[in-house]
Amino acid sequence: MMDTENPPIRLRQLLPADKAAIASWPPYPDAFADLDYALRPGGWLDEFGDRPQAWLYAAEQDGELVAFSIIAATEGGDAEFRIALHPEKNGQGVGALVAARTLDEAFARIGLRRLHLIVRQNNPRAIRLYRRLGFAQRGACRQVVNGRLVDFFRMDLPGVRWRPE
């Protein structure tokens, strides 16, 4: 079924020029300010950019770079999943479209067995999205991010449960 509210998302390999464009995105709104580091130099793109068996994707909508996503192999056919949206695209359904395209890549094209992620416990919008996609909560953890202790939920999605939209 075609989503008439959101134009299609095109997922492609992330290019060096995309990294510069992402670094120039405006800061996240105050409610998401703690997530802004992911977009900046030293953030996720630098963390995963040279990692073997990491797939970095740029997401375009109507020719505009609206998000990026990362799949990074861990062990046993599993991988970590991350996604970041352009700050002006939050709450518009873009995250669901990009996530679905990335999950298709992970399971259908790359052939991964399971994806896992951590999501901030104070990010109910992301938690709802991951649950709608089929991720299940598997525990909690605390990690230091930018010098601050952050509470996360651990979630995972076996490939056998993923059903493309």
Rank of each mutant, 00 (worst) to 15 (best):
W25S: 10
E165M: 08
R131N: 08
P164T: 00
I118K: 15
M1T: 05
R51V: 09
I83P: 05
Q53P: 03
A136Q: 07
G111I: 02
A38Y: 01
D62L: 12
D104R: 15
R109F: 07
Q121T: 06
H116N: 09
R12V: 05
L56E: 01
N6T: 10
G93Q: 07
A21S: 11
F81E: 01
L56A: 04
Y28W: 09
N90H: 12
I9M: 14
R125Y: 00
L157N: 07
A99H: 10
V150T: 00
G111Y: 06
V145H: 04
D156S: 11
P8N: 09
W162V: 04
R113M: 05
Y28N: 07
L15V: 00
A108M: 10
R131V: 01
L129S: 05
L39P: 10
D156R: 03
L15P: 12
N146F: 01
Y130H: 11
F153N: 06
P16T: 03
N6L: 06
R138G: 03
Y130C: 11
D18C: 08
P124T: 00
N122I: 10
I71W: 13
F135M: 03
Q121V: 07
G95H: 07
D34R: 12
R10H: 14
T4D: 02
A59Q: 00
P16Q: 02
T4W: 07
P27C: 11
F107D: 06
R128E: 04
L112E: 03
N122E: 02
R132S: 13
G49H: 09
E47D: 08
M1L: 10
L45A: 02
A58E: 00
K19L: 09
F135K: 02
I70H: 04
P124H: 04
E64A: 15
E88V: 09
P124M: 09
N146M: 04
A136E: 00
I9A: 15
R148I: 03
K19D: 02
